[in-house]
Simulated scan of single mutants.
Amino acid sequence: MPNSNAIFASLSASDASALRPHLKSVHLESRRILFDVGDVIDSVYFPTSAVVSLVVGLSTGEMVEGAMVGKDSIVGVAAAMDSKLAFTQAIVQLPGDAFVCDASAFKGVAMQSERLLSLLFRHEQAVYAQAQQSTACMAAHDVRSRLCRWLLRARDLSGGDHLAFTQEFLAEMLGVRRTSVTFDAHALQQAGLIKYSRGKIQILNVDGLHEGACECYETVRSQYAKLLGRNRKAHDARSMSGVAHG
């Protein structure tokens, strides 16, 4: 259901009704590239269980993650709204479901709603703030605390404790050597926080990861809570009103 996406769930009844006919359910496979740098965005995605990384490529071929988004976000909305090219690559990090909307149809609905436009601006602020936080995190925090933060964020967005990640992919997203990830993942496993095998990580101790994570995890959570706060209350109020009059 579209309402499994927090942004869609926070829309007004009229905005949701206007968008719903344009939504198509899709399953996004791991490593699928939704768009690349320089692409014209023709689709907007509302993830419901898929997790997507917004990454920046370097001339050396390395990739660094700027933001991790999922059921708390929309993918591709900024470029779709102003017809500009994508300046990051969007790659599916964890497979799952999403709803996709034609970018032109999405823009048409958004331009008719001041409330929806306001939400979209705040959403883009939150994604931009997350990217800024990631930059500061890479500069100031050690690999282990960043790894804890990254695993917690992936768990929040996927809704499960089993994450299908290779250490190579983790190293790419964190912008470090694989040996660094191997060392710190082993330390977390020895501490009983995670269990990992080839291509799979199971989170065993969420509280332990919270203790080991850098401050950036809670900062990003707070940013998204502020993003959805007002709209979530309005959505809940409408739902209760509907029950009262049903």
Results as ranks from 00 to 15, higher is better:
A213H: 01
V206Y: 01
V56N: 10
K233A: 08
C101N: 09
V92E: 01
D39A: 02
L174T: 01
T135C: 04
C216F: 10
G159W: 06
F121A: 12
M1F: 07
R122D: 08
Q223D: 14
A13I: 11
N3W: 07
S197T: 07
A6T: 04
P2S: 05
Y217V: 01
D42K: 06
S83Q: 12
H162W: 07
I201Y: 07
S25H: 15
G38E: 10
A191L: 02
G57C: 13
A13L: 12
Y224Q: 05
G38V: 03
G159D: 11
Q190W: 09
A237L: 07
T182H: 05
I33E: 08
A185N: 04
I203F: 04
P21T: 00
E218Q: 04
L163C: 01
L85Y: 07
C137A: 14
T60D: 11
Q112E: 15
L157G: 05
Y196G: 05
S239T: 06
D156L: 06
G175S: 13
H162S: 11
L120A: 01
V52N: 10
M138F: 09
G159A: 13
S53D: 11
G70T: 12
V56C: 13
Q202T: 01
V176P: 13
S49K: 04
L227I: 01
E62K: 15
D97K: 10
E62A: 15
A90N: 03
E211A: 07
S53K: 10
S239V: 05
Y217D: 00
R155I: 08
A185S: 08
K84N: 14
S14E: 13
Q132F: 15
F8D: 03
